[in-house]
Write a protein that binds this DNA or RNA. Structure first.
Length: 438
RNA sequence: UCCUCGAUAGCUCAAUGGUAGAGCAUCCGGCUGUUAACCGGAGGGUUGUAGGUUCGAGCCCUACUCGAGGAGCCA
């Protein structure tokens, strides 16, 4: 006897009940809602794979089961043995006619009720909020995105080469580092796996890094987390065009996969999938920073030569029905490792991908500076500690090659695909400014 | 760091400066097809904290704490 059967009846995930019509099965899960009507109890049972209605009739079960069913409260856990039948009156078209209902664990005064709640309350109860329909749907989409991402790189023979979380050096500016005490020495939580990714690309050619990144930004917006997951491909002998093509192939692949396999989740989320379909087609529109600046000329808040703000990105994104690639930003507003455009040295060979519908920048990438002396100057210009970057400079001393890559913020991509209001809903346990519980 | 808004029952919100209320949740009762079910009843409050104005403050003033949205910055 295992937990996967009970009284000789085999457990079936709710998602798969449609394959077991007219069979007797074991369903194990939690009560998401109950409606009682005299001698009938309508139980909504959730098991993580889906939700199904169980109709407990007084004359179809023993007294103990009927009593147990009637006294169930929200999020009590249950074990049910019953027959799977098709019924148009059931919310999912399939329902369970139990002959046995057993309480596994009681649930008294579950805090998250059927009516609406404020964000602070929900965040305080994130561990329980995760059980709700929308949150589980978002998490399944996140899961699908991660799987699609790994499949994409596997198919193209990019090796998974993860970077360390502890690092002695900064790569995205020194003001947003989380400090840690590393056996008495100062160290930081990584802001990006890229620098190590470059070293890995010199070893294995095409690689990707996937892991959390930490940024101590004092940002209080729906587009920021202090801990977020980033996937960062890096490839030797890739120039900026190769990077842009890889980025659009990557995003279109993922969107296509989610549309194929997670339709019902997108329905639960009431996501308008017609807004996602154009993104399955490549190429994506490409425009240079200079071209984009002209489009923003009418906007008084835009200062030519400065980076785009969130409203500008929204404006640029809104002009297209799919993500847009903006390339060659002014070098002075970009990171030290980006290669200058030989044709216009004040601009960097870099690219941002801006998602439609105001979801903002989901990708930042570039061709990297491959020349030892130029790179050394940049590190000094940016007032970074040169001695901590000697290993990084070695990549230019020993067989330097043109190379490039990008970083994609997983939660921002998931937010756009699911239509989520806020990034905090796109990671199981978000870490934000002033929020580290639960 | 800056700007704006907010804090009243477990939750979401009401309440001319004059007796603190509703829906949901909880508990009790009713109902054999409910769809955030419905119907009847019950319990539930130091109005974020500390001061101040006033005959009287949930409401006006000051400070603080916490929260939300946005800016900057970024993925």
């Amino acid at each position: 006897m295992t937990c996967q059967s009970y009284q000789g009846v085999r457990a079936v995930p709710i998602r798969r009940l449609g394959d077991h019509l007219e069979e007797e099965v074991l369903v194990q899960g939690w009560l998401s809602n109950i409606r009682s009507k005299g001698k009938l109890h309508f139980l909504q049972i959730r098991d993580g794979s889906g939700t199904v209605q169980a109709v407990v009739a007084k004359d179809a079960v023993d007294d103990a089961s009927f009593e147990a069913a009637g006294s169930l409260t929200q999020e009590a856990s249950v074990r049910i043995i019953g027959k799977v039948v098709a019924d148009a009156r059931a919310p999912s078209g399939v329902e369970l006619q139990p002959r046995l209902v057993e309480l596994v664990g009681p649930s008294v005064d579950f805090p998250i009720t059927k009516k609406e709640h404020g964000p602070a309350f929900l965040m305080e109860h994130r561990h329980l909020w995760l059980r709700s329909k929308k949150q589980t749907a978002i998490m399944r989409v996140r899961h699908e995105v991660i799987q699609a991402m790994r499949d994409f790189f596997y198919e193209r023979e990019f090796y998974c080469m993860d970077s360390p979380m502890f690092t002695p050096n900064a790569c995205e500016g020194t003001t947003t580092l989380f400090n840690v005490d590393y056996f008495g020495d100062p160290a930081y939580l990584t802001q990006s796996g890229q620098l190590y990714g470059e070293a890995s690309a010199m070893a294995l050619g095409k690689i990707y890094v996937f892991g959390p990144a930490f940024r101590a930004e004092k940002s209080k917006t729906k587009r920021h987390l202090t801990e977020f997951w980033m996937v960062e491909p890096e490839a030797a002998f890739y120039d900026l065009d190769d990077v842009m093509t890889l980025a659009e192939d990557f995003v279109s692949y993922i969107v296509k996969r989610v549309l194929e396999r997670r339709r019902s989740e997108l329905e639960d989320l009431e996501r308008d999938v017609s807004k996602l379909e154009p993104a399955t087609q490549t190429p994506y529109p490409r425009l240079s920073y200079s071209d984009a600046s002209k489009l923003l000329e009418a906007d008084a808040t835009f200062v030519p030569g400065d980076d785009f703000g969130a409203p500008h990105e929204t404006l640029l994104g809104a002009a297209h029905d799919r993500p847009v690639l903006v390339h060659r930003y002014p070098r002075k507003i970009k990171s030290f490792y980006m290669k200058a455009d030989p044709a216009a040295p004040d601009f960097a060979l870099c690219v941002d991908m801006i998602a439609p519908e105001g979801y903002g920048e989901i990708i930042g990438g570039s061709e990297r500076e491959a020349d030892l002396e130029v790179l050394r100057e940049r590190i000094v210009e940016h007032e970074l500690p040169l001695e901590q970057f000697e290993w990084y400079l070695d990549l230019r001393r020993f067989g330097s090659v043109p190379h490039g890559g990008f970083g994609l913020g997983l939660e921002r991509l998931v937010a756009w695909i699911t239509g989520a209001e806020h990034l905090r809903e796109c990671i199981p346990f978000p870490r934000m400014l002033y929020r580290i519980y639960p």
